[in-house]
Amino acid sequence: MNVDNKKDIPWLCDKCKKELVLHKVKVRYLEGNFEVELLKCPECNMVFIDEELATGKMLEVEKGLEDK
C-alpha cells in the first residue's frame, strides 16, 4: 500500500464510519514511553498504523530497543 499516493483520500474507521484524525498517541514498548502523532478514530480511539510506518520507522525504533 502506498499511502503517499492516496494521502488526499481520508481514512474511515470501519466500525464507526468516522474519518480518522491526526492525534498525539502514547506508545509504549519495553517500558519506553513515547508520544507520536498517529491517525486515530475520534469515536472509538482505534489507531491506524499503515504498512510503510510499521515496516519503516516503527521497526527501526523496535530494533533500536532490541535486547540481546
Partner: peptide, 15 residues
Amino acid sequence: ISDWDKILYRINKNT
C-alpha cells in the same frame, strides 16, 4: 522531522 525520528534520536543518544 517526524515524532518517530525524534524517538530514534532519543533511543540512539540515551541508551
